[in-house]
């Protein structure tokens, strides 16, 4: 992808809201449309790149729909933009359509739920570096925890379209079936590798589901499911590449598995960000320096958010 996707010019663009669909208790899928320069800038976004949305002028939802633990924070005036990666990017004529998968976690994402079709939102992007496809890989393993499934759906699409020689398998986990950010109800899902998640199946990518409480698919952390699958596989480590996005603890475990089995692994990190454009230095990720015991802070926004897992100090 690094070769196929030339760098696009980042900037501030206005997007029109196409849809903002609730797909779970806390999960939504926001569809945005860019035209003109914005359409050009976002047309070749790499999976794992992100954008900063200004949600400060979005309205609050009605009081009775605000989750109890967000009631106190809900009234807070939003100042900073919020970073989101993309679950899908599509071009139609001279427009670019993007989907953002998001979860209501605080006052800004709470307001985000009221963005309505036809409205507009200011977007800064595309930002950061996405997932890369190293030469010679035959199998891509996509390991998602919770909302990490978003950018990995975009990656599945790109792998299928641009790298037909690569076979991709997705692993998606959450604490419970309720917390899996997919449109289909998954509580009865089998613990078998099949085309069970439409979000991945539409690109011909098989998937396995895991829940910590066993309410859907594999009972246990998605990393155990992933590790078990690898244990049964007879694929050579160097023919595979792992892409992971999810909570940091999970990424750390994926990185460990990758190291043990000597598999290339890229992780998408998350940090609190103020600017997203390399200025504020807020989003530091501690990274190793080659052949040294020293570490440096790299920026999640500019050096990442996708890092080689060997580089990151978890």
């Amino acid at each position: 992808m690094s070769e196929k996707c030339s760098a696009t010019k980042r900037g501030e663009y206005w997007a029109t809201v196409r849809a903002n669909k609730q797909i779970g208790e806390r999960f939504y899928r926001l569809g945005l449309e860019f035209s003109g320069a914005g359409a050009e800038a976002f047309a070749r976004v790499q999976a794992g790149q992100f954008a900063e949305l200004d949600l400060s002028s979005a309205a609050l939802p009605s009081a009775e729909t605000i989750p109890q633990e967000l009631v106190d924070a809900a009234g807070r005036k939003i100042l900073l933009r919020r970073p989101f990666s993309f679950a899908d990017v599509d071009t139609r004529d001279d427009r670019t359509l993007v989907d953002i998968l998001y979860c209501v976690v605080g006052p800004a994402t709470l307001r985000m739920t009221t963005l309505a079709a036809g409205g507009s939102v200011s977007v800064i992007g595309p930002l950061g570096n996405g997932f890369r496809v190293p030469d010679g890989k035959k199998t891509a393993l996509l390991a998602a925890g919770g909302m990490g499934a978003g950018p990995l759906q975009h990656l599945a699409k790109i792998l299928t379209a641009d790298f037909p020689q690569i076979d991709a398998v997705a692993f998606a986990g959450a604490k419970t079936a309720e917390e899996l950010p997919f449109e289909r109800r998954l509580d009865k899902i089998a613990q078998q590798l099949e085309f069970s998640l439409p979000e991945f199946a539409r690109y011909g990518v098989r998937s396995l589901v895991a829940t910590d409480d066993g309410s859907a698919g594999f009972a246990g952390p998605v990393t155990d499911c992933f590790s078990e699958w690898l244990g049964k596989s007879d694929l050579a480590g160097e023919s595979m590449v792992i892409y992971s996005c999810g909570p940091e603890q999970m990424l750390a475990r994926v990185a460990e598995i990758a190291k043990t089995r000597n598999i290339d692994c890229q992780v998408s990190m998350e940090r609190r960000m103020a600017c997203g454009i390399g200025i504020c230095q807020s989003c530091a990720v501690e990274c190793r320096v080659a052949d040294s015991a020293e570490t440096v802070y790299k920026l999640c926004c500019e050096d990442g958010p996708v890092f080689d897992s060997k580089e990151v100090v978890f």
Binding site: R76, K77, I78, L79, L80, R271, R272, M273, A274, C280, Q281, S282, C283, A284, V285, E286, T295, V296, Y297
Partner: peptide, 12 residues
């Protein structure tokens, strides 16, 4: 290197 993270937090 700068400080450890989190380095920022939004307030009202």
């Amino acid at each position: 290197k700068g400080n450890a993270t989190p380095r920022i937090v939004e307030t009202d």
